[in-house]
Each structure stands twice: as C-alpha cells, then as structure tokens.
C-alpha cells in the first residue's frame, strides 16, 4: 500500500511516543531531554511565554521547575490527532493535556490546555518544530464569584 500523503503505522506510533516523551521530560524537569525533543530551531509558545531554539527550550524547562504552582504536576494527554506524510517527513499534532497535581490530600485536576504542534523527521527521528499551547477556557470559580 502506498504511504504517499499519509503516515506509516511506525511513524504514527513514533509521533504518539514523542507526545509521551515530551510529557515525561517536562514532568521530570529534564531540561536536556526536553529540549532534545525539538529541532535545533524549535519553538514553544504558550502561557509561560515564547521560547526558541535549544537554549531557550532548556530555559523553559528551568522556568517550569522554578514555578511553585507547577510543583508536583504531571501531564495527562488526551484527544490526540496526528496527521502527516511519512515520505515528506512532516506532521501536525493536536491534543489536550490535563495537569494533575499531587497534593497531600490526594491528586487534583489542576489545569487544562490545548496544544497544536508541527513535527519533522530529522535523521530518522521525529522532533517537534513548533508547539503552541493555549489554556482551556475556564468558568469563574465559586470562590471568585
């Protein structure tokens, strides 16, 4: 079967694994591992600002680690849609993430966001080229009226 204009099963699985590796690296505050999931000119743009290239991406991971509100949080992804072309080595990804935060009284669902990303295959590895993250719309909490 021709794979022109579509992803092979191996590439589809590799891209989904890239999503999981991103979440693990971010949750482990592994700046080197996190940045290595992006291309050299990779970009992350979202609630924490815009971060470019490997040095900037390592700085993003350091910023996450230095943000007390994000202490003890882990990503739980969902609604992953991946499209792309294995021959061209390009892909787009869309997904939601819920951040689960560990608290002494038990885990809570802390926040939610939407990610839209592009990825490219470089030397046989899929990497993020750009990842845009937006916070999910929220209703006012009862406490804030």
């Amino acid at each position: 079967m021709s794979t022109a204009g579509r992803l092979t099963l191996d590439d589809r699985v590799a891209l989904e694994t890239l999503v999981y590796a991103y979440n693990v690296a971010a949750d482990e505050r592994d700046a080197e591992g996190y940045a290595a999931l992006f291309t050299a000119d990779g970009v992350w743009d979202g609630m924490l600002g815009r971060f470019e290239e490997q040095e900037g991406l390592r700085a993003l991971c350091a910023k996450i680690a230095a943000t007390p509100a994000l202490d003890g949080t882990r990503h739980w992804p969902n609604n992953i849609v991946i499209e792309g072309d294995s021959v061209a080595g390009t892909a787009t990804l869309g997904l939601d993430n819920v951040l689960v935060k560990a608290l002494p009284e038990g885990p809570v669902l802390f926040s939610a966001s939407r990610s839209e990303a592009t990825a490219v295959k470089v030397a046989g590895r899929w990497l993020f080229r750009e990842r845009l993250v937006t916070a999910a719309a929220a209703v006012p909490s009862p406490a804030s009226g």
């Binding site: 819920v98 935060k101 809570v108 669902l109 802390f110 926040s111 939610a112 916070a135 999910a136 719309a137 929220a138 209703v139 006012p140 909490s141 009862p142 406490a143 804030s144």
Partner: peptide, 12 residues
Amino acid sequence: MLQPRAGAGVAA
C-alpha cells in the same frame, strides 16, 4: 466531561 474553574482547578 471536565470544566476548568478559574483559580480552582478542573472539575469533573
């Protein structure tokens, strides 16, 4: 079905 609440996490 999840709903983010401003400053109060995400409710199911």
